Simulated assay, not measured.
Amino acid sequence: MTPQNPLDTIRRLSAAVLAVSRHLATDEVLQTIVATARELIGAEYAALGIPDGAGSFAQFLVDGVSDEQWAAIGPLPRQHGMLAVMLQDPAPQRLPDIREDPRFGWWPKAHPQLDAFLGLQIRDDDEILGAIFLANKPGGFTADDEELLGVLAGHAAIALRHARLYERERELAITRERNRLARELHDAVAQKLFALRLTSQAAADLLRRDPERAHAELDQVAALAREAAEELRSVVVELRPAELEEDGLAVTLRKHVEVLDRVNLTAGGPRVRFEGADVKALSPAAEEVLLRVAQEALHNALRHAGATTIIVKLAEHCPAGTGACGGALLEVADDGAGFDPAAVRRAGRSLGLVSMRDRAKSVRGRLDVASAPGQGTTIRLEVDRGRAA
């Protein structure tokens, strides 16, 4: 039902507009716009479609349809009937009954029955980004409804434009990171591998005629191999988590650990293992902090611990005594030499702990370091879902 209080209308419209400016995920913004349009204008159903360029829709968001109904309807619609009209004809489509329009096509058996209809294009200058439509308002839609829906369609266009710009920036960032990584590999690793190849060839030539010199060359081969592995490990640790948004925290962490484990295996270093599953409903900032703290802790363990095994664990955070779970718990534990945290502070060394604590504070998390000489080290980070939001 359309709100009677004008202030209520302004508040709801303001919430939809603010959703665009708060840099929420594009799906969240568009879903807010669809729900707001349905509620403000008093329609039974609302939907917003983004074409995929191949005759169907890349996204199709609805409001007023239950999950069971949506599942029964089946695959996303293709561009036929009035959906095709809205993507081709710039004129608003305001109809007393969609079923009586000669351009109406059909809908699946489980589709809700529509009558009164209002649809508008979502445009960015001359480019058609999608379409938004409402259906089933008692008494039909008015010119005022059309104007209000036009405002919301304009904000949907802003959200989609922001999403495109973000994706372009992300692609540029990935390209820049790949170029940086290529330079790092060439400058730091490739040169050592070249020296390694020359030294191993020299050792092979000396093996028969001067075994003693060959032995010295082989010692140099081993040293170069360790240095190359260390350089490669450093590059991997610093690699930007471009896949975090797509793969999620657990998959990204697992991939990172697997790469480090392969690098260490070839160099005779410690085994690196990952245990855990994805943690839901964390903010992007919290996910990046968890990943960066894990990377820093791994870097410390690989460089300083002298461990045989390093285990990275990720789980949902379930504080003792609360009976509830939410947020994330990260642990990076090694069985290495350990250290005295107090002595490290007194000596003015940080081992990256200051950076990790600062990252944890940025999402109101709690970082604990448990270590003692000869007893290994465990870095533990707790991030509560509500505190980190």
Rank of each mutant, 00 (worst) to 15 (best):
E212V: 13
E238D: 15
A286G: 04
A202T: 14
A360F: 01
P77H: 04
S371F: 15
I122A: 08
P241S: 01
K361D: 01
L95V: 02
D124R: 04
E382N: 02
T377H: 09
H299Y: 12
M86S: 11
V263G: 08
L13A: 15
N136A: 09
R161H: 04
F339K: 10
T308E: 15
E243P: 07
A277L: 03
Q69Y: 07
I379D: 04
F57E: 06
A307S: 11
Q69F: 04
L61R: 10
A389F: 00
I41V: 15
E44R: 12
E230W: 07
S371W: 10
E231L: 11
L381I: 01
L253V: 06
A110D: 15
K361I: 00
A188M: 11
A110Y: 14
E296C: 03
L329K: 14
R209V: 08
P96Q: 03
D125Y: 05
L298Q: 14
L61W: 08
K137R: 15
V344S: 03
D278M: 02
H155Q: 09
A131N: 15
T309R: 11
D89R: 05
V34A: 03
G139H: 08
Q375N: 09
A342C: 02
R99S: 04
V272G: 05
L30H: 06
L30I: 11
A388Q: 00
W107E: 10
A225Y: 07
L330Q: 03
Q295D: 15
G49Q: 07
T175Q: 13
H162C: 00
D8W: 02
A360N: 07
D97C: 01
A195H: 07
R183P: 08
D187W: 06
T32I: 08
K137N: 15
P373L: 12
E287P: 00
H155R: 01
N179Y: 11
A294C: 14
R213M: 01
L30Y: 13
R349T: 06
L198Y: 04
S14C: 05
T309Q: 06
H256K: 13
P373Q: 09
V259T: 09
N179Q: 13
Q201D: 14
I122V: 14
L249N: 03
R213D: 01
A47T: 11
A35R: 11
L196M: 08
E28Y: 07
A267I: 14
A267F: 05
K192F: 03
I41P: 11
L129Q: 05
L30E: 10
I122D: 12
F104N: 02
